[in-house]
Design a protein around this nucleic acid. Structure first.
Length: 259
DNA sequence: ATGACCCGAGCGTCGGGA
């Protein structure tokens, strides 16, 4: 059994204790973090290492930033998304090989800031992600692409009234780009096991979104075919949103049968 | 359409120590 998780922590330094508690409780093999919001040197790698997890960090000042924590031996296969010019300027992708699979951890642009250029950057990231996924498939790799996709794939993934229809998270082009990933042959882990129902991974800090359960399902794990065959469970860890000083996202956890 | 809330950066102010 292999346990893999993804968590947008909204500042790893603010959330260090939450993450350490969660690691001790859940003991994932791999954990992808997004929005660490710090440079590599300020990442609390020693604290995670003391908990049994080695780290690969792709940070930047103030914004974005991704990292993977692993208790399995690993090798780093990418520190930026291939097929995307200028992506090195923003720390949004890191990828390792561990436990016999490729684990890509991504933080997709939100797309609501920066006007039309900001939205185009979101679509460009999704196009590059599709090209990369196709290359991994053609290379015969088994993989998990997990992270904060900043896309609500369907209306069922968005609490009624949570977002206007013009929001970048629900716009038709965003959803079409997500479907193109699925059409490559990838499996949305959560919906494969839970085709319907509320499985939100994010609740805004504002306007009582959490007590009203006004959430979004925007964190996803997409699986290559052989990994999908091994899928055993998938769920967001809702309890984490009820803690003191939480991130606005909760961990998404999947388990795989086999080695 | 708007606000609510949170985070980091940076700035100003304050208090403590040398």
């Amino acid at each position: 059994m292999m346990k893999i998780a993804s968590w947008n922590v909204n500042s790893v330094r603010q959330r260090q204790a939450h993450v350490l508690d969660w690691l001790e409780r859940e003991k994932p093999d791999l954990l992808g973090l997004q929005e660490i919001k710090c440079e590599d040197a300020s990442f609390p790698a020693e604290a995670f290492r003391a908990a049994g997890y080695d780290c690969v960090v792709v940070g930047q000042k103030s914004y974005n930033g991704v990292a993977i924590l692993s208790r399995l031996p690993f090798s780093v296969t990418a520190r930026a998304l291939p097929f995307l010019d200028g992506e090195a300027l923003q720390a949004r992708y890191v990828e390792i090989e561990a436990g016999g699979l490729t684990f890509g951890n991504l933080y997709l642009p939100n797309g609501n800031s920066g006007g039309s250029a900001g939205y185009e950057a979101k679509l460009a990231f999704m196009e590059a992600l599709a090209l990369h996924a196709r290359a991994l498939l053609e290379a015969g790799r088994d993989f998990v692409l997990a992270g904060d996709y900043n896309v609500c794939p369907t209306d069922e993934d968005c609490a009624p009234g949570a977002l206007p229809p013009t929001d970048a998270l629900v716009r038709p082009e965003s959803r079409a780009a997500f479907r193109r990933l699925i059409w490559l042959g990838l499996t949305d882990a959560l919906r494969a096991l839970h085709p319907h129902g509320r499985y939100y991974t994010f609740w805004d800090y504002q306007a009582g979104a959490w007590p009203r359960d006004c959430g979004l399902r925007i964190d996803h794990a997409l699986l290559s075919p052989r990994i999908a065959e091994r899928l055993d469970s998938a769920q967001p860890d809702r309890d984490e949103r009820g803690r003191a000083q939480p991130s606005d996202h909760v961990p998404l956890v999947i388990t795989l049968d086999g080695p």
